[in-house]
Nucleic acid binder design. Structure first.
Length: 492
RNA sequence: GGCGUCGUGGCCGAGUGGCUAGGCUGGGCUCUGCAAAAGCUCCUACAGCGGUUCGAAUCCGCUCGACGCCUCCA
């Protein structure tokens, strides 16, 4: 019996704009596709927020017992900086600026992306396909769409005929756009365009002479349109209709709208059951974006080498900060907000690390069953991590009461409490106890000696000496805590 | 201009038609040689104006404001 059989997950579907009961196409299995990064520069914190949202979703689906195939692509084929027919692609531009090969750009920033995600304890996806590795599949889709009469060739480039498609299907169903109105509003501003209508988008672009990344096709040596790769890779690995498609809110239009159109033109079926969109991370009141320079890089955040914050914050702290907001809410990134999260996070992990030293009693004075249900209820309600975290702080209160022997749990209940808390802290939220890395046996032994010496001094009422030991250790970041059961310490 | 999201206490951030999320900060108390930690406790908000309702922060309308998309962006 898997957990999902007793937990009805509800997911907000961007397509229906409402929360729906989640039922996978194949019982017990989930196919999930998430639009990955274009690897032309360092991954920034806003990108991380989106991927973290889906890491949480992936983790919880797995915890529920689903067999999940999670596909997250790497966009390593450059796409044009704008929709004009002329233009340089981002990766090629970066290669020219840094005087390296386009594939060196791709490699450099793919490695950066993976390093950042690993530091923040992301689970790797099941498949991480690249756009350039699926050119053949993309060409096949273009052929099929042309054969259906929904795309046309101009000077070696292929464009999707949005107007024609819209006669049978609803272009704009995801983003709530009325394409007919848009067509009438738009005057043809530049007569240079090869496109029949400004709303049409490229499936294949003929490469000009300076375009280095190019592949042969029936129409020209060129490169695929941006939206095509996701259709090719999602269809290949997850089938023509799959369960969940995710990405950032800013990809809703045009990217995801075009994906729907391509898939329907290609296979004739609705490609995705549940569309999920993570909201933006805001910095200085504006969206974080590479193109505007308003962003902060994760590594700068960890090291403290940035202009916004005076010091660094650990990867887990950043992870915790982001998870304290719901994935569909705009999250405001601020220094004070991070500091508040850090304190809360330390408090949570401090309590969590002490759970093993709780002794069981002969009766339950806390309602652990109800607490556990509320943890699940939070996550079942569209992955509400802030509410889950609120429940975890409830658990912190329980732990302290138990340690203080103001509450008791039977051995069986205590075991259930411990395993549930462990699952949610480590497996679902993906938090790590970073303090353990810093605490070595040697350090513990040395501090224990000092605690003994201090206790001797205290017995002799030599407060000057005992306070000196305590204060000097505090200066080094070792905080002594005098409790009923003796003195313990924690690292700051 | 069009489409969409949203305006919650000192700050960050959940949320439901009636039963005070949570974290951080600040005040008080307990414990303690003192402190810290821990526990208890206080500060009870929902942009504004109308409407629906026995009752709305939660539903509807309007106003004001913020943000996102409409050209590449997670």
């Amino acid at each position: 019996m898997e957990i999902y059989q007793t937990n009805q997950l509800r997911i907000y579907n961007s397509l229906s704009k409402s929360k729906e009961d989640f039922t996978p196409i194949v019982p017990g299995k989930v196919g999930m596709y998430v639009c990955g990064p274009t690897v032309y520069s360092n991954v920034h914190l806003g990108n991380v927020r989106t991927f973290l949202s889906f890491d949480l979703i992936y983790r919880y689906l797995k915890h529920l017992g689903y067999k999940v195939r999670y596909v997250r692509n790497i966009t390593d084929a450059g796409h044009l900086e704008n929709d004009a027919d002329e233009g340089e692609d981002r990766i090629a531009k970066k290669a020219r600026l840094e005087e390296i090969e386009p594939m060196e750009v791709v490699q450099r920033y793919t490695v950066d992306f993976h390093q950042v995600l690993q530091r923040m304890n992301f689970l790797p996806p099941s498949i991480e396909p690249t756009a350039t590795g699926h050119i053949v599949e993309q060409v096949e889709i273009v052929k099929a769409i042309i054969a259906k009469g929904l795309a046309y060739v101009v000077n070696g480039s292929v464009y999707f005929d949005v107007i024609k498609y819209n006669k049978e299907e609803a272009y704009g169903e995801l983003s709530g756009r009325d394409i007919e109105a848009a067509v009438h509003q738009t005057r043809s501003l530049d007569g240079q365009s090869e496109k029949k209508n400004p709303q049409d988008f490229a499936l294949w672009k003929k490469a000009d002479d300076r375009h280095i990344m190019r592949w042969p096709s029936p129409w020209s040596d060129g490169f695929p349109g941006w939206h095509l790769e996701c259709t090719a890779m999602s269809t290949k690995y997850l089938g023509e209709t799959f369960d969940i498609h995710g990405g950032g809110m800013d990809l809703k239009f045009p990217h995801h709208e075009c994906e729907i159109a391509q898939s329907k033109a290609y296979k004739g079926v609705e490609p995705v059951r549940y569309w999920m969109h993570a909201n933006m991370l805001i910095l200085n009141g504006q969206k974080m974006a590479k193109s505007t320079g308003n962003y902060i890089l994760p590594n700068e955040l960890f090291s403290g080498e940035n202009q916004l914050l005076g010091r660094g914050f650990s990867p887990s702290t950043v992870r915790f900060f982001i998870l304290q907001a719901h994935y569909r809410s705009v999250l405001d990134f601020t220094g004070p907000g991070l500091e508040a999260s850090e304190k809360g996070y330390v408090k949570l992990m401090e309590a969590f690390s002490k759970i093993d030293s709780i002794a069981s009693g002969d009766k339950d004075t806390l309602d652990i069953k109800r607490w556990k249900q509320q943890c699940y209820a939070a996550m079942n309600d569209d992955f509400n991590s802030p509410v889950l975290i609120a429940q975890l702080f409830e658990a912190v209160k329980y732990i302290n009461l138990l340690l203080d022997q103001q509450a008791t749990l039977t051995a069986a209940t205590l075991a259930d409490f411990t395993s549930t808390l462990t699952v949610f802290v480590l497996d679902v939220l993906g938090l790590q106890d970073e303090r353990k890395d810093k605490r070595s046996d040697t350090l513990s032994g040395v501090v224990d000696i000092l605690i003994d010496l201090r206790n001797e001094a205290r017995d002799n009422k030599d407060w000057a000496l005992s306070d000196k030991i305590r204060d000097q250790l505090a200066t080094l970041g070792v905080q002594l805590k005098d409790g009923k059961e003796g003195t313990t310490f924690s690292l700051q």
